[in-house]
Design a protein around this nucleic acid. Sequence first.
DNA 1: CTGAAAGCGCTAACAG
DNA 2: CTGTTAGCGCTTTCAG
Lengths: 339, 339
Amino acid sequence: MSKKHVTSAEVAERAGVSQSAVSRTFTPGASASKKTAEKVRKAAAELGYRPNVLARAMVSGKSRIIGLVVAYLENQFYPEALEKLSNELQKRGYHLLIFLAEQTAGHIDIVVDEILDYQVDGIIAASVAMSSDLSERCRAAGVPMVLFNRSQDDPNMSAVTSDNYAGGRKVAEFLLAAGHRKIGHIAGWHGASTQRDREAGFISALAEAGVALHSRAEGDFSMEKATEATRSMFASDPPEAIFVANDHMALAVMDTLRFELGLKVPEDVSVVGYDDVPAASWPAYNLTTVRQPANRMVTNTVEILLDQIENEISETRRIAIDGPLILRGSAKIPEGWTT
Amino acid sequence: MSKKHVTSAEVAERAGVSQSAVSRTFTPGASASKKTAEKVRKAAAELGYRPNVLARAMVSGKSRIIGLVVAYLENQFYPEALEKLSNELQKRGYHLLIFLAEQTAGHIDIVVDEILDYQVDGIIAASVAMSSDLSERCRAAGVPMVLFNRSQDDPNMSAVTSDNYAGGRKVAEFLLAAGHRKIGHIAGWHGASTQRDREAGFISALAEAGVALHSRAEGDFSMEKATEATRSMFASDPPEAIFVANDHMALAVMDTLRFELGLKVPEDVSVVGYDDVPAASWPAYNLTTVRQPANRMVTNTVEILLDQIENEISETRRIAIDGPLILRGSAKIPEGWTT
DNA sequence: CTGAAAGCGCTAACAG
DNA sequence: CTGTTAGCGCTTTCAG
């Protein structure tokens, strides 16, 4: 039924050369005379031959597969990043094997084991908390890993994020300049480095102006929780402005403010988010936010990972890319504010 | 540096058994005595051994990798489907290798070749047009393929979609019952079967009521194009109601209507979409739409594919799952309308 | 430059 | 049930 895959041996026979000659013409760095290569390519084309990546992986130790661990795709930032990552990798001859990880501690371990089973050349962990233990296991297996949009205390783990601390500061400075003093924060999951850094930057800039956080609630990076957080924050003594730890939650916050609490944004409350997901620019929200430069984050991630894979550079690198505050209509704009 | 992967031979030695004994204890259907298995598992655990999936794939011919071809992830329906697909497959011991395909004819061919190189056990093609030629190539390679959310004229290609024709009819009946007679349609990409079926069902139900389409414009499944389509449709003699071929475009249509044209939805225009993506239920849109039952579509897709892979069932199946019209606030609700 | 030969790590007959 | 023996399809020494 299924015509078996054409092998290099069959091509060799048809081309009248050895099987190794076939291998060589399809191996980038190998030496084959123009004439031989010609014959081989011709025979290969006629037979529809293509090298078996898995067999190649077995002997070379390089599978050209990158494992991607990701927790959820609901937040629009991740599909976008996934798409860019995949494209960038595809261009370089690699492909992504997807692993969805539940945020429960034990599950991640299982997932990482499964990944390793596939002899991936590298791992990208997006939005997941990696224990040092786990990263140690990957290192032992000789599989480089880079964290995407999350960093870790572990100093020998490469990570690419936006400059969350600086971003948090920008939001505070912007809100302060607009004259707000009663400022609230709706936080994401406290275990995430992104959350901690954004909030730390935010608080520090507030503090420098002698302003303390007026109110705080946790939204856990989920829309439902963010909705509840908004309700409780506005139950009494509401703030004039809120910094929501990511856009995904900020959309829910705006909806709750407008359609449940009957408040006007930004007249009654200024709202600022973080990420600049596609929906942030949709007119219905028109959300002021800090952009995470997905393109540059992806480029850097791929570069670091492939450097480790192809050039065996083991130096760990941690990159935090600065992103601009995008002015839109969900927050009062300070007079004379530039950029 | 990188501690080489532990092999079954090493485990065998430590357990004092043959290498095949090790293989057998890790192969589901194989015969190994309780005692042997015990010893092997112990040794394996101590060494941290795990079977090499790629080596297994080479000899068994089963890689436990499913290739997923997808065009874009911007439309929220796809990340959602991807997440569910991956989860379902992961449960069954398979994993998704992602391939992003540009919609240009030539690129799909390249992508399919790349997929085949990885000796995938099966292919899921989501939202991409597959030529009969291409599907023939996969069949020749013995790799089953199922189309997700797109069907094809080719009768021996399995496909899972929602019942787009019935869905289109539902929208028409609903709009008609609300008393609308000047009804417009903003279409998606004309090459997509989903578009053709939705529109055909819509038109046919309209026709049965003696109503002709009042206006039509193409949005190509993109927000930008949908925005332009809305502008041109409302430039003169605007419709009272619009059926937009998918939610992704419908969001842009609503934004254009409200924020650019200053119209009220649904007071001035009723808008109905298709898919029921997450954003459709966000209060800012509250979009009336036909739900594509992603869960059931995924379940069916996986079942069909794994049946072909594991049970060598070659019968092609085409499934169209009925989805309900979800009543929300973007369209006038007919008096006494039920479900 | 080229062919022969040796495996990569594993499963699948095949005898015992 | 278990060990031995062949390979899966390919890259990579190693001689020539």
